[in-house]
């Protein structure tokens, strides 16, 4: 029977949880994509944020936004394809409630950075889009480096 009742010691259970956690962490570390691709994705994200912050009726920054959005899409597709060639299929859509929650939080964070960059510039701080673009690009690079498969791992607490 699959789910037959079995008891194991507290120590064995803790060791098992620790091994599961390290297996996941080791795997995610080895699944990292090339730094060039991380840089390209982050740069195009920065370009979108910066261009949105600088766009006015009389300038051409809207073009930067379109170029940034298209290149972001292309580089993300390349990122998924690179993983596929390596033998890893990454789930694009959230499978669990935790992942859905973290993706919504990230969407809100990037949304706030994007809007704040523009609004703060309109209030008078000229360099707000530059700062917003740096934050968005840096944060995107961090996420792609730390969580390449999109899975967020929480640390396991161990009761010794």
């Amino acid at each position: 029977m699959n789910n037959e009742k079995q008891t194991i010691s507290k120590e064995e259970a803790a060791a098992t949880l620790k091994s599961v956690d390290s297996t996941k962490r080791d795997a995610i570390q080895s699944f990292r994509i090339p730094l060039l691709l991380i840089t390209l994705i982050s740069s195009s994200c920065s370009l979108v944020v910066f261009s949105w912050g600088m766009t006015e009726h009389e300038n051409m920054w809207a073009l930067g936004m379109y170029i940034g959005s298209v290149s972001f899409g292309i580089f993300v597709a390349l990122y998924l394809y690179t993983f596929r060639l390596l033998g890893i299929k990454v789930s694009v859509l959230a499978r669990t409630k935790e992942r859905l929650k973290s993706e919504l939080v990230l969407a809100v964070i990037f949304g706030v950075i994007l809007i704040a960059g523009r609004q703060v510039r309109l209030l008078g701080l000229e360099f707000a889009p530059h700062i917003a673009a740096l934050i968005a690009g840096g944060f995107m690079a961090y996420l792609l480096y730390k969580y390449p498969t999109g899975e967020y791992l929480q640390g396991i607490k161990h009761n010794d």
């Binding site: 297996t23 795997a27 498969t149």
Partner: peptide, 21 residues
Amino acid sequence: FDTIIHAPNRLQICALLDTTK
């Protein structure tokens, strides 16, 4: 408690598969 999953190698396989699609 699932005895099928608990075997060390199978637990690692499930842990690996849980990180991706």
